[in-house]
Design a binder for these strands. Structure first.
Lengths: 183, 183
DNA sequence: ACCTGAACACCGTTCAAGT
DNA sequence: ACCTGAACACCGTTCAAGT
């Protein structure tokens, strides 16, 4: 990448990070380009889709949760590992209003730039769930998609002003419904 | 209302019902006016906000769930009444993609044309919850807002294609977490 | 009393023209 | 190789002008 291009690229990312933190994932891309002092075409050149921009912004965080899940597997009991993953997932979406809907859509859209990272994320949770189920610490009648649905629902609640303050309590209620208390 | 105005009004509602069923609650109002063969200004004259249009379209259904809740109170045991209300709420939003987000926003926005109906809806659920709690059939550590959050989350899941098919199962899981099994 | 649609201020996205 | 911004096809919303 030419150095002038690199400069624009970095500037776009910096501004996008700020704007998306403030206005959510559906913020105006035109506005991002404007604030970055760059033509709108330059934004599209570097990030052909909104998902591509999000992937660049958040991909590392996604991967970190995926990797963390693997680490939990060897460092925690299966039920605690699962609970930690759930917590990490909610935290991942915490500061990015609307990202959970984008992730949900990406799971089904193989063309999405977010698809890969989201599929790995889902698989990392499914693995922890399976282990907890094998040890009788999680109810057996749900699968990885159900688990993802439940965390996604919590993440969505967190985006809704009237409900955001109760997410911690509701997290407990839902985690409690997934887990089986030890005898 | 003059008869020509009434005709436009009815036509707008009919088209809006169709378009919103197809494209969801955030469908283009311009498109609605266009398909109704009416100027965009006429739509705004009859329905000054999107919420006003939604209220006219869905208000009766909202009220019906509210009233149904009161009926459950005298015809069912408190836990069955609560479960039926939860089911009614999910059904209410079933065919209207995005309506749950509008309802959630309306709860906080006293200016919203949907505010009144949503507050009543919430109160009707809170009442059933309180009764079930008083009888020891629902966990005591949640309130009406939590209950609304949980149904809202289910309704949101229902709007997400990858999760829609599991809402029934997840409904059971969440209802089970709210209710206390009888001894 | 009611209707119309131009006008304004925005979008997302593409692409010819420039350097 | 990269950047720009006009151009196109859309929005939501308002309001002067018409009947």
């Amino acid at each position: 990448m030419r150095s002038d291009a690199k400069k624009n690229y970095d500037q776009l990312l910096e501004v996008a990070r700020k704007v998306i933190a403030e206005q959510g994932v559906n913020a105006s891309l035109r506005d991002v380009a404007r604030q970055a002092g760059v033509g709108i075409g330059t934004l599209y050149r570097h990030f052909p889709t909104r998902e591509a921009l999000l992937e660049t912004l958040l991909g590392a965080s996604f991967d970190q949760v995926t990797n963390q899940a693997a680490a939990y597997e060897s460092s925690k009991t299966s039920d605690r590992a699962l609970a930690s993953w759930l917590r990490d997932m909610v935290a991942l979406t915490y500061d990015h209003r609307g990202v959970i809907a984008a992730m949900t859509a990406a799971i089904e859209d193989e063309q999405s730039a977010l698809h890969g990272a989201c599929v790995l994320l889902k698989a990392s949770g499914a693995r922890l769930l399976a282990k907890a189920q094998a040890e009788g610490r999680a109810r057996a009648d749900i699968d990885g998609t159900d688990l993802l649905a439940l965390v996604s629902a919590l993440a969505w609640l967190n985006d809704q002003p009237p409900f955001a303050a109760r997410v911690d309590r509701l997290f407990g209620l839902i985690a409690g419904a997934i887990m089986i208390p030890s005898a």
